[in-house]
Design a protein around this nucleic acid. Structure first.
Lengths: 174, 174
DNA sequence: TCCCGCATGTAACGGGTTACATGATTGC
DNA sequence: GCAATCATGTAACCCGTTACATGCGGGA
């Protein structure tokens, strides 16, 4: 399952870490961690805290690391996306060019915000840990690759949005 | 739900049409069509066929069209993707640069095939119906926008794959 | 001969989301 | 005073997938 125990983390932390590229919510993660523990793939230490529920700090066992390594050798499934925007665009012609333009503008705003966010995080990563990011044996190397990918894709979709808006303008007011 | 009744279609056709941008399978579509019919959003005519089960040709009612128009006025949810490849890449550092390269090559091959397929379909569309594709009141206009988007994104990810492979080579054999 | 395409569905299962339950601390 | 952050979980539900059931015609 969503195995991302680079470092020991609590369930709560795992949810946050996954957020960026494989969203899942708490009520899903906790049962999974419990199951991993039952199968011997992970163990946890309890850290008592005052004024908060006790933390369960999970970490992978050797057997868990082996299972992850095996999974890495399998071929990944083709990606699946669901995106209401695309479905709407598919039917938007029925309401005319204005509706299409509205959708595109909406998407553009969304992408702009998203891009800024990504760039900020990426910048923070490479300025704080420049050495790690260049070392392919380091976890942060993987992270930089993933950031660069997302940034490139978002920039491309943004380009597409603008292109589409201009063609729409050209076509509809001639 | 997946409302894409541009023209009257059978359940079987709907599944195929959706394939490209919002995959769903037959056992999901049939109950949905039945529900649409119960709610008065769609009706069907039965076309008897010899040697095959009778066709149920569904089409949207006025009330169905109105519902679709209302949906088009709502703001789309942010997109969700799940992609094993990304999860694997995230952990691939643990197995070293070769594992990362292997993943990237695998993805590259996948994207190459996908890109060819998309370009072929896009070409077919614009050569067969050049006028429709330029008319924003026509359904095929929406389709061309969607194709251009997908093609751009796939090309960008391909570029990223190649870039990543070369940085990996540079970094690991110096 | 066997698989693919056409054409419809039902039943069981599994993964994911939403809602609920608890509770102290910190900042607006 | 209210929301957000930290921290754990359970229960119900929905959406989607897999497997099953049926059956003929055409191409490899």
């Amino acid at each position: 399952m969503g195995i991302l125990l680079r470092q020991p983390r609590t369930g709560y932390d795992v949810v946050k870490d996954l957020q960026s590229f494989r969203p899942a919510n708490a009520s899903q993660i906790y049962p999974i961690l419990a199951k991993l523990e039952q199968h011997g793939y992970a163990t946890f230490e309890i850290q008592a805290q005052t004024a908060r529920p006790d933390k369960k700090l999970f970490k992978l066992t050797e057997s868990g690391k082996a299972a992850l390594a095996r999974w890495l050798d399998t071929d990944p499934e083709p990606p699946v996306t669901r995106d209401d925007f695309l479905s709407m665009l598919f039917s938007a012609w029925s309401k005319g060019p204005d509706a299409i333009a509205r959708l595109l503008w909406h998407r553009k705003r969304f992408l702009n915000r998203y891009e800024q966010d990504l760039r900020a995080k990426y910048q923070a990563l490479v300025t704080n840990f420049p050495a790690d990011c260049d070392d392919p044996h380091n976890a942060r190397f993987s992270s930089t690759l993933l950031y660069r990918r997302r940034i490139g894709l978002v920039a491309e979709e943004l380009r597409w949005c603008e292109e589409s808006i201009t063609t729409l303008e050209k076509v509809s007011d001639i």
